[in-house]
Amino acid sequence: MSAAIHLSYKVDGSDFTGAGTASAAIKRILREIGVDMDTIRRCAICMYEGEINMVIHANGGTADVYIDTEGVKMVLKDNGPGIADVEQAMQEGFSTAKEGVRDLGFGAGMGLPNMKKYSDEMLIDTEVGKGTKVTLIVRFPKGGGDGA
């Protein structure tokens, strides 16, 4: 699986307003290269929840996106506090987000479950005190529609 396209974004941890900019850019690119709407939406949701998490929990990070003929791989990496109990974090409704984040429409503990639901593969590599790397793969549907 050699990546035909590699895109890299910095996600600013101090700017909640800007969160989602990279997701929007990816959506535009996927649309331009002719990827089907359902796949675009799944990628957008995964990437957006990932971006939001890096901003609200980890003071920002980087998002690397690789696109090839099979699908889209998103790698979200931060140097934040890490996740002590991944199994617990994956549960719907579990959140350590502060009240202010909830007022902004996030922090309901649905991010990681959403990412799991909409990706084909999800891998969380995390260490407390060091950071978190979330890898998400969304595959193109079989039979055409590979966007290439």
Binding site: Y48, I52, M110
Partner: peptide
Amino acid sequence: DLMSDVLAFVTDQPVLLTGLVNPQ
């Protein structure tokens, strides 16, 4: 009012009503 709910449950609902006002 929760954007995570929109991301989780919305498929082809082209009109969103909300009391939340922010760029997200």
